[in-house]
């Protein structure tokens, strides 16, 4: 076991560029402690999904990491040979995707899809994998596992599909789960059940979660720490409770004022002020200039 002081995931100064030289991640640093939920929040294009993909080693080929380190339980992913890196990521992380219908193979039954990873990648015996999956289906409160295991993905509701993927994510006891907008496609009542389930399993299994979302409401409910992203840059980082009590960055403040709240309809849904956007643009430009100097 690792020393408890070591973060589960430690991203240091990570920068990534597109072929045209545009920086899509701008010196991102963040740490996820063991058993902690860290939210990554931002609008589209903020790079939050990109960070999750970088951690899992599944960045699109056009995105190149040019600087920085990612340490998974102290192991520097950049220093490992590709095969060793994949093995480590495969054993210690898992993904809960946004859209379970795309993530599941439509032409295979749920059962084999869930055991596949355990058997083929982690080398478990079929019986052990089977027993484990049944146990997890019980934990995600699927009452009739026999039926569900025999179903094709389209035969399940959106909420059920997401339960199946949550069960699959926790099955191999990963140390870190990347949850990429896992409730965005769901109705509010189902979203609440799924968030509750993720929180419960996360607590019981002591799993750390990097929780990607655009919804500050979800951030407030699920996370202990939060990083606010804009244009691939962390503009504010805080304990979730502190962020909501006293947001420091003008952009965080503006995002909060833009987020709809039925309890306070006229204090919410405020468009982001042009001054805030101009400030952000200046901040990004200054960061890029400072970064380019040593990088020629």
């Amino acid at each position: 076991m690792n020393a408890p002081a070591k973060p589960c995931l430690d991203i240091r100064n990570l920068s990534a560029v597109l072929p045209n030289g545009l920086r899509v991640l701008r010196s991102v640093s963040l740490a996820v402690e063991p058993g902690e939920v860290r939210a990554l929040v931002g609008e589209s294009g903020a790079g939050k999904t990109m960070i999750g993909k970088a951690v899992l080693g599944v960045l699109p080929p056009s995105v190149r990491i040019v600087e920085g380190n990612m340490l998974l339980e102290g192991e520097d992913l950049g220093r490992l040979a590709p095969k060793a890196r994949r093995t480590l990521i495969g054993a210690r992380t898992a993904l809960i995707p946004q859209d379970p219908l795309t993530a599941l193979n439509p032409s295979r039954r749920i059962g084999p899809q869930m055991t596949d990873r355990l058997v083929r990648i982690l080398g478990w015996s079929g019986e052990k994998a089977d027993a484990r999956i049944r146990q997890l289906l019980d934990e995600v409160q699927i009452r009739d596992p026999e039926r569900v295991l025999k179903c094709y993905p389209h035969e399940l509701s959106g909420g059920m599909r997401q339960r199946v993927l949550i069960a699959a994510a926790f099955a191999a006891e990963p140390r870190l789960i990347v949850a990429d907008e896992p409730t965005t496609a769901l109705d509010v009542t189902v979203q609440k059940q799924i968030l509750r389930l993720i929180a419960q399993l996360q607590r019981e299994h002591g799993t750390a979660i990097l929780f990607v979302t655009h919804d500050l409401g979800v951030v407030a409910k699920i996370s202990q720490k939060v990083s606010v992203l804009y244009a691939g840059k962390v503009v504010e980082e805080a304990d979730t409770a502190a962020l909501f009590a006293a947001p420091q960055h003008p952009y965080t403040l503006a995002l909060m004022a833009a987020t709809p709240r039925y309890t306070d309809p006229f204090a919410s849904l405020k468009p982001v002020d042009d001054k805030v956007l101009a400030g952000l643009a200046a901040e990004i430009a200054a960061a890029d200039q400072a970064w380019r100097r040593p990088h020629g």
Partner: peptide, 27 residues
């Protein structure tokens, strides 16, 4: 919003994650 008559409406309202800290929400 102030006096929802139906349980379903109340459930819908209670399920909305408001951007404020509420530790009991996920229980």
């Amino acid at each position: 919003f102030e006096h929802p008559r139906q349980a379903y409406t109340r459930d819908l309202l209670a399920a909305i994650p408001l951007p404020e800290i509420d530790d009991a929400w996920l229980l």
